[in-house]
Design a protein around this nucleic acid. Structure first.
Lengths: 336, 336
DNA sequence: TAAAGTTATGCAACCGTTTGTCTTAACGAG
DNA sequence: CTCGTTAAGACAAACGGTTGCATAACTTTA
């Protein structure tokens, strides 16, 4: 398929190295020559071979993205595309592409990341959502490879990691407090998989708010949900078998949506019998009945910031690291 | 960062070519030697450099994905991740990665695709959703590059294109007919951007069904919506300014969700005053009030099939082409 | 027992760029 | 007029693999 740098060189009557330097607009080449070479490039339809470039220059222009969960689950959550959108927005202005290695489970995922990194297909990696004591993080850290985490890498004792996250403890506290302020008495919670820091944190915030209000948390009203709507539905059902809380904090709108349906199936009306609050402020929230009160977490910003940190880390080197916290904003609607 | 093929060769006391052949498990190498070389690879932690491999072997292991719209819009539609999931599922079993070039508008998009392809970063491309007379398609076709379209490349007179799509005319007909059978009289339609074949087709199906039922289509009850919920909301409002249809076909659930809210804001109740039907059967449909009647379009299958076609096209060559139609299935719920 | 195959491996050229170093011509200064 | 600079390019050695061909050691076969 190809017109190469040599063809251009021949056509412009210069050496390949000159063409290469023209491509990178090196000051060592005179304006005249540049003009001539560019002309030749245009006429021949020359496009540098990215692989050859990467081979010598040692960078690929690719950023890897990992979704540390069985991908299938994450894909279907609106958070993912929204964060990706933020990442894209930044990468776009830096002419970088996104590389994404499909994996079906944790071990494939680990292998995929290793292949990506060790075979030199990417210059850096963004990890979406961190597990507790995430081994991917420790590995990348140990080989000193540029990466950034969307999510909090706690409790890893690793300084100098780049990450960006919401203050999820604060968010948990905020929504619980909101319910308390509204006068709800028995407040339960539906969390997600507690191996993920985000869920741990939001649960922690819930506990803190409850404690601060002098309320005891009731294990009967706490449930860990499986993925998304159905998970929320089932979790709510389990709670309702134990009694009737007056309100439920859910760590995710998708859980909330399922929970609302469970309540309704059991004959409870929202928000009158049971109040429900979610987190993430996904697109459909305002179209639900009742519209779901939630927390805007700025997934787009999260992605955007992550990309920015990563680019900086790549450019500056291992001595650079930074983390940023993005605060959530309560979006009041009618579900509690 | 690296241990190279030469290091392994030295350690195993063979030539680099032998190591290369061991990596590809060539039958020309004896079992003993293979064992020895593999041992050395393991001890040194060898990983072949993907860029160098691509440079000589002429293939990258990457499949490019293009979202032919301003990305931001497409990203936020549940169709995208679902199709991507199908694509991933196939690619995963073939050790291929997904490359994805962020673009903000049509010209960036075109440039991004060209760069991907001409610089040799991908072995093939999947185009999500086709425009009418899509120039990306004609270009890829003209340079004989492997690609597959999710969507119908009509009316391009190009034989030998690989594509996969729903039968969107049939879907349009089906949902309209369903409304007619339910006894609805004045049926309107909300379509999306009519530069996209999918919208053209669904509209066409609507018209066919109306005509077959001896109903005349009423332009006052037809509107072209901007993106998603808000688009559907505004389109519905426009229609309601012209009168009150008894039911509305929408070409997308997200439009339907917006339309429902618009009806409600104007004091109409669904499905009693106005019936609404959507297409895509997105996750939240069943959680809406009322649950939305829709059409399952099997986005996952669409993605999966597309990936399979593309892989075949890459393997077999330009003489291969195929297309597959995936039929939708009506999912009855309570919105009409 | 010599010619003809096999089998297992090495050699070296090549893939398309990049980049440090060398060359050459022109120029200004002393 | 000579010499040191500088500017603009050419040369060639990488980068890390792949692969067609040559080779050497062993079989077979007649």
């Amino acid at each position: 398929m190809g017109v190469t740098i040599k063809d251009v060189a021949k056509a412009a009557n210069v050496s390949p190295s000159t063409v290469s330097r023209v491509v990178k607009d090196s000051p060592r080449i005179s304006q005249e020559t540049k003009k001539r070479v560019r002309q030749a490039m245009r006429e021949l339809g020359y496009h540098p071979n990215a692989m050859a470039q990467s081979l010598t220059s040692k960078n690929t222009g690719n950023i890897g993205i990992m979704l540390p969960r069985p991908n299938d689950e994450e894909f279907n959550h609106p958070f993912f595309p929204e964060a990706l959108r933020g990442i894209s927005a930044v990468l776009r202005t830096h002419d970088r592409d996104i590389l994404f290695s499909p994996a079906g489970n944790e071990v494939e995922e680990r292998r995929a990341l290793q292949r990506m990194v060790l075979s030199g297909k990417v210059d850096g990696v963004v990890l979406l959502s961190s597990r507790i004591s995430d081994e991917l993080i420790t590995w990348l850290y140990s080989i000193n490879f540029p990466f950034v985490v969307i999510g909090n890498p706690r409790p890893l004792g690793l300084e100098r990691i780049c990450w960006v996250d919401n203050d999820n403890v604060e968010i948990g506290r905020m929504i619980t407090q909101y319910l308390i302020d509204k006068g709800y008495e028995d407040i339960g919670i539906i969390t997600g998989d507690l191996r993920f820091v985000v869920n741990i944190d939001r649960l922690e915030g819930y506990k803190q708010a409850m404690e601060a209000a002098g309320k005891s948390t009731n294990r009967a009203y706490m449930a860990e949900a499986d993925v998304w709507e159905d998970g929320g539905y089932n979790a709510m059902l389990r709670i309702l078998r134990n009694g009737k809380p007056s309100a439920i904090v859910t760590v995710d709108d998708l859980f909330a949506i399922g929970a609302i349906r469970a309540c309704r199936d059991r004959g409870y009306s929202i928000p009158y019998d049971i109040g429900i609050i979610g987190v993430n402020n996904i697109g459909v929230d305002q179209y639900l009945m009742p519209p779901l009160t939630s927390v805007e977490i700025y997934a787009y910003e999260l992605g955007k910031t992550a990309a920015e940190l990563l680019l900086k880390r790549i450019e500056i080197g291992p001595e650079y690291s930074d983390c940023v916290i993005i605060h959530g904003r309560l979006v009041e609607r009618a579900s509690c």
